[in-house]
Design a protein around this nucleic acid. Structure first.
Length: 160
DNA sequence: GCCAACGTTGGC
DNA sequence: GCCAACGTTGGC
């Protein structure tokens, strides 16, 4: 399977790209996803080496703010079994974890955030999942063309 | 802060 | 299996 690309959403007040950068080795687990479609991507499709757009949602200018890379493929999200976690799910067990996560590593922050509204009229980017009205999917596939178009907009010549 | 859109729950 | 009610997401 060749390298694939994804967009991960996060509210920066909850977890920002700076938080990922500042994590030990700039690696962290992407926990707390509680949506089955997103879970399926995390569990079944996302592979080590895949590219990730880090997207900040629920702010005045929602934007792709940088890049990350997958360093560990899907494994059980332990926060689902932690009653003190805000993402606790009493149905999750060791044998049946229900929820999964991956590990990602910070790669780069864009020189400036690429605001969602900049994509609206872009031929390659207006069709992104994140552009769809009412889209709530927090882990989304990104096409190779979309990946390259965003890197070009960000002024990043070489795919890091 | 508003509110449309969405996913989930649960009664039937 | 249907669908109304509900809680949440997320752009604006």
């Amino acid at each position: 399977m060749s390298r694939r690309f994804w967009l991960f959403k996060s509210e920066p007040s909850c977890y920002s790209i700076a938080d990922l950068k500042n994590a030990p080795e700039s690696v962290d687990c992407w926990d707390g996803v509680r949506n089955y479609q997103a879970r399926n991507f995390l569990r079944d499709e996302i592979q080590v080496g895949d590219g990730v757009f880090f997207y900040h949602s629920n702010i005045p200018q929602p934007a792709i703010v940088g890049l990350a890379r997958v360093t560990r493929a899907g494994y059980p999200d332990h926060t689902a079994r932690d009653p003190r976690s805000g993402h606790f799910d009493p149905r999750a067990t060791l044998e049946r974890p229900i929820w999964y996560m991956v590990d990602v590593q910070f790669v780069a922050a864009f020189p400036r955030p690429l605001a969602r509204n900049e994509f609206r009229d872009h031929p390659a980017l207006s069709g992104m999942e994140v552009m769809k009205r009412g889209s709530r999917l927090s882990v989304q596939p990104v096409s190779t063309g979309q990946w390259q178009a965003v890197l070009a907009l960000a002024g990043i010549a070489e795919d890091p």
